[in-house]
């Protein structure tokens, strides 16, 4: 072998060593990136990355673009379906990988969204442990934030959910709670439209209170107080009460049961007729309508 050749070989070998080191460093950086970005690129996304990097397969950018567009549209449709079926609309989900070593992957997730009129944000750690083809997923460090003003009744439930890390229960209860609140809102609106001269909603249709009054009965107001209670275990129950505001003079004139015992009487009506019919009968009473 000639001296010239030997020299060339040495130069090349040094160059290779340098390049290998650089490539390794880049590979490490790429792995770190993939850890942070929770998604791994497969299928159309893989082709798209290749295309952006100028390594696309035959067919060119146009085809990659249209295929990815198709896939994204399918996913949008899928998301619409899940949102509709679950009654929960998710606005953001960010994941950060905290640990990724062979069989165990730990991620920190933050999911926020809205259920009817309720905004929420949940944060938790998700560990996935793979052992002989089975994978065990576990949630820990659950933290729930609810953004709403009148949610004192939710607080003991939220703390019990955080303790038991029961994400599924939380969302099931949140949904039931929202459904019951929507029922109330619909009922309030229905009565306000049907009896506009009697029914008013001082706190808006989503509040707990509906006020009933009549022009000829000035000073007398009945309040339907309809709250939705959430137990520590996640049970959701509506609680409807009738409160009265009647001037003292009127009470002195009619000390008898019809006025004073209205609250208790309403509870029996509720039991017998159900919420809507009971409220309607009260409204008709205060409207001074004659039952024909």
């Amino acid at each position: 072998m000639s001296v010239e050749n030997m020299e060339e070989v040495e130069v090349l070998e040094a160059q290779i060593e340098l390049l290998q080191a650089e490539v390794e460093a880049l590979q490490r950086q790429q792995q770190d990136n993939q850890k942070d970005m929770t998604f791994q690129f497969r299928g159309q996304m893989h082709d798209a990355v290749a295309s952006v990097c100028g390594l696309g397969p035959g067919g060119g950018k146009e085809r990659v673009l249209s295929r990815l567009k198709e896939e994204v549209e399918e996913m949008e449709e899928d998301l619409r379906q899940q949102t509709q079926m679950n009654g929960i609309s998710l606005t953001s989900c960010t994941a950060k990988t905290l640990q990724s070593s062979g069989r165990k992957v730990v991620q920190q997730l933050c999911v926020s969204g809205r259920c009817s009129e309720l905004d929420f944000q949940v944060e938790f750690k998700l560990s996935e442990l793979t052992t002989d083809q089975r994978s065990q997923r576990t949630i820990s460090d659950l933290n729930v934030v609810l953004d709403s003003s009148d949610l004192q009744n939710f607080s003991s439930f939220v703390s019990s959910v955080e303790e038991s890390r029961d994400l599924l229960l939380f969302f099931r209860t949140l949904r039931t709670f929202s459904d019951r609140c929507d029922d109330r809102c619909r009922t309030f609106q229905h009565f306000q439209q049907k009896y506009p001269s009697v029914v008013s909603l001082p706190g808006g249709c989503r509040s707990e209170v509906m006020a009933l009054s009549h022009a000829e009965l000035s000073g007398c107001v009945l309040f339907v107080h309809w709250s939705v209670e959430v137990s520590r275990e996640g049970g959701v129950t509506p609680k409807i009460e009738l409160l009265t505001k009647i001037p003292d003079e009127a009470l002195q004139l009619f000390p008898s049961r019809p006025v004073g015992g209205a609250t208790e009487a309403f509870q029996s009506l509720l039991r017998i007729l159900g919420a809507e019919a009971a409220i309607e009968s009260i409204i008709r009473a205060i409207s001074l309508q004659q039952d024909v």
Binding site: F39, T83, N86, L167, F171
Partner: peptide
């Protein structure tokens, strides 16, 4: 695409 994938995954996780 990545955002949709994460949102769909989140739907799955929350039951």
């Amino acid at each position: 695409h990545t955002q949709l994938k994460d949102l769909l995954h989140a739907h799955h996780l929350i039951g």
